[in-house]
Design a protein around this nucleic acid. Structure first.
Length: 109
DNA sequence: TTTATGGCTGTCA
DNA sequence: ATGACAGCCATAA
């Protein structure tokens, strides 16, 4: 309760409603947050979120379906472990099948 | 106020 | 399929 109307808070809310066992892309989160096209800010927002926000930032991946190489090396592995622990499967290249684990409003087959 | 950064995305070779 | 370049814009100093 310090800032006034940060867009990040909206982003945190969107990320927070990502279902477990599902991943969303930065672009998708941005779109749901009302900032379609500002995917970059989404990643930055997740980088600056508070630990008490309980935001499953790990469920947010880039458009390629893989974790992004953030500033602090090592967290990319942690993110991968967290996702695997939620039931998300990575391929041999460390990529996720967005067609299956991607958070979509419209299930298929 | 301006400047610099950045967990991205889309297009081109 | 991957690798490289430019663009967009919010937040922090």
């Amino acid at each position: 309760m310090s800032v006034r109307h940060p867009r990040w808070k909206k982003i945190h809310a969107v990320v927070r409603r990502i279902p477990k066992g599902r991943v969303a892309t930065y672009g998708q989160v941005a779109s749901l947050a009302g900032m379609a096209g500002h995917a970059r800010q989404v990643g930055y927002a997740l980088h600056a979120l508070d630990d008490e926000d309980a935001v499953p930032w790990q469920r947010v991946v880039n458009a390629r379906g893989e974790v992004s190489p953030r500033s602090d090396p090592g967290w990319d592995q942690i993110q991968r472990q967290l996702l695997e622990r939620e039931g998300i499967h990575f391929d041999l290249r460390g990529r996720i099948d967005l067609d299956r684990f991607g958070w979509k409003h419209h299930a298929r087959s």
